[in-house]
Computed example of a mutant assay.
Amino acid sequence: MSKRRIIVGISGATGFQYGVKALQLLREMDVETHLVMSKAAGLTRQHETAFNRQEVESLADVVYPTGAVGAAIASGSFQTMGMIVAPCSMRTLGAIASGITDNLLTRAADVVLKERRRLVLMVRETPLHLGHIRNMATVTEYGAIVFPPVPSLYAGPQTIDEMISHSAARAIGLLGLDHPSLPRWGETLAATLAEGAQA
């Protein structure tokens, strides 16, 4: 694979901004992004953000309609580093756990798993019932990584955007891609906090 490629899926869970931030960070890292958004994601975008569809799509290198089940990312022969679903709704989680590939987002996720590539799911729901937890366990057994976007307060975020950026960068890191702006404990972050405590 000559160029690093990542599939970005955005489903209809709250937290549309996580998908946008993932696209922005990956662009800064010169990673080729292939975007697919569920129909419900459009409703969340309209409700939670000021982005229009064209603005979001312009952040990706390639954009696919959710019904395009014959697209490149639906085939294992199309090489990628993996996929991030940000955010991942419980509906999408359940479909992946059940092997239901009824749209391009869930098909692409299924392909990533069968090819033994990395799949990071930023699952977004609370509280959780037993079915949610069992689906998380199932996809974990398949090889996926369940990564709820829980704010890392130790990083000292000052804005909502900083919290979103940190979670998105951590999720991207699980794909083997380290964004240079991500503060890491034991490196720059611990030293910064120690200096603040001494001041």
Results as ranks from 00 to 15, higher is better:
Gly173Val: 05
Thr159Ile: 10
Leu175Lys: 02
Ser167Cys: 15
Ala191Met: 02
Tyr154Ser: 11
Gly173Thr: 06
Ser152Glu: 12
Ser167Phe: 01
Pro157Tyr: 14
Val150Thr: 15
Ser167Tyr: 05
Ala190Asp: 15
His166Gln: 14
Pro183Leu: 01
Arg184Ile: 13
Ala190Met: 12
Ile172Val: 04
Arg170Phe: 09
His166Tyr: 15
Ala155Tyr: 14
Ile160Lys: 08
Glu162His: 06
Ala169Phe: 03
Pro180Ala: 05
Leu153Phe: 15
Pro157Arg: 09
Ser181Gly: 08
Tyr154Asp: 12
Pro180Met: 00
Met163Val: 12
Pro183Arg: 07
Thr159Trp: 11
Met163Lys: 03
Ala171Glu: 07
Tyr154Gly: 11
Ser152Lys: 14
Pro183Gly: 01
Arg184Asp: 06
Ser167Thr: 15
Thr188Ser: 15
Pro151Ala: 07
Leu177Trp: 04
Ser167Met: 14
Asp161Val: 11
Asp161Cys: 09
Pro157Gln: 10
Ala171Val: 05
Thr188Cys: 04
Leu182Glu: 07
Gly176Gln: 08
Pro183Val: 08
Ile164Arg: 05
Val150Trp: 01
His179Asp: 00
Arg170Ala: 14
Pro183Tyr: 05
Asp178His: 04
Glu162Trp: 01
Leu153Gly: 07
Glu162Gly: 02
Leu182Trp: 04
Leu174Trp: 02
Leu153Ala: 13
Asp178Trp: 04
Arg184Val: 13
Gly173Trp: 06
Leu189Cys: 00
Arg184Glu: 13
Leu182Arg: 02
Ala168Trp: 05
Gln158Val: 05
